[in-house]
């Protein structure tokens, strides 16, 4: 079941949990044996602490949800001092999702995380729709993503995964720009920009009006984008967006993903990530695939 994503990031199976949906892993240990997962990607972290957006931060939508958390976190130094010692010995890959509001923040944050022995990779978040500066601004133009990836690449020596925004016209071009600037892999998709309105009160449901859409409803969009990107780039693609079960995960791999992330589905079934890992195995046995890697891009069309 092993998946080698390059530059030292080797997963025991293709299933990881998506940033912002699995806390620091500790919140889920009553439900999931973390050793059953390829990796966990911890909550989006920025160089400086952020209080995030005001409440309310979520709204349920048809087969999904909107959120506008706004990267609430206590900063990279707090992560290093307080959280890292608690989670560094988890029997799985622990990846840090790193975000920033300016180029310098990304570079300084990446330098600090580079020194952490037990963090084999950063998922660079250039696609958060809920922060005013930076975040998605870097991820929606080829020039923006080239700049931030190239600068982080200079200081970060381990696996650099770049998380892409779906809120663009041509995601394959953005992925190619990330690859050319030195990304080791790309993950997609982050949330789709959306909004919800309370008609009775004539008010937006989210405190900052717009937010990011996730859940089962985004899966067809995510699948299409993974397919387009996987055809365009040579680096591994990590697929996410509405994956709720093993069949969904297999579909992403057939479309070209080397690994997947489980996001919003963790809220509905806290044990779902391990179930997806077993289910992919079961699919491979049922269809006679010797290696899980044989699924990657095996779509017949």
């Amino acid at each position: 079941m092993t998946i080698d994503l390059g530059r030292g990031l080797v997963l025991r199976n293709p299933v990881m949990t998506a940033s912002g949906t699995f806390g620091y892993g500790e919140e889920y240990t009553d439900f999931v044996d973390l050793a059953q997962l390829g990796g966990i990607i911890v909550k989006g972290t920025t160089l400086h602490p952020r209080e995030g957006n005001p409440y309310p931060r979520m709204a349920e939508t048809a087969s999904g949800m909107l959120n506008c958390v706004g990267l609430q976190n206590k900063g990279v130094q707090y992560f290093i001092d307080t959280i890292y010692p608690r989670i560094k010995d988890f029997d799985t890959n622990v990846l840090l999702n790193l975000s920033g509001s300016c180029l310098d923040d990304y570079v300084k944050g990446a330098e600090m995380v580079d020194a952490l022995d037990k963090i084999p990779a950063i998922e660079l978040n250039v696609s958060c729709p809920n922060v005013k500066q930076g975040g998605m601004a870097f991820g929606v133009t080829c020039a923006g993503i080239s700049q931030v990836v190239a600068e982080v690449r200079k200081v970060y020596h381990k696996h650099l995964m770049v998380k892409l925004s779906p809120n663009v016209t041509n995601i394959a071009e953005i992925a190619l720009a990330a690859e050319a600037a030195g990304a080791d892999s790309v993950s997609l998709i982050n949330t789709l920009m959306g909004m919800a309105i309370d008609a009775e009160r004539r008010k937006p449901k989210l405190s900052v009006i717009t937010g990011g859409l996730s859940g089962a409803c985004v899966k067809p969009v995510a699948l299409r984008m993974v397919w387009q990107v996987a055809k365009a780039v040579k680096i591994p693609v990590v697929g996410l967006g509405g994956i709720s079960n093993a069949t969904d995960a297999v579909e992403f791999m057939l479309a070209g993903a080397s690994a997947v992330e489980i996001g919003t589905a963790n809220f509905i079934d806290p044990a779902v990530s391990a179930k997806v890992a077993w289910g992919i195995n079961e699919y491979c046995e049922r269809h006679g695939f010797q290696e899980v890697t044989d699924l990657i891009g095996a779509l017949e069309c």
Partner: peptide, 10 residues
């Protein structure tokens, strides 16, 4: 959403 302290919505 999650009820577990993971999503930071509430």
């Amino acid at each position: 959403a999650c009820g577990l302290g993971a999503c930071l919505c509430c």
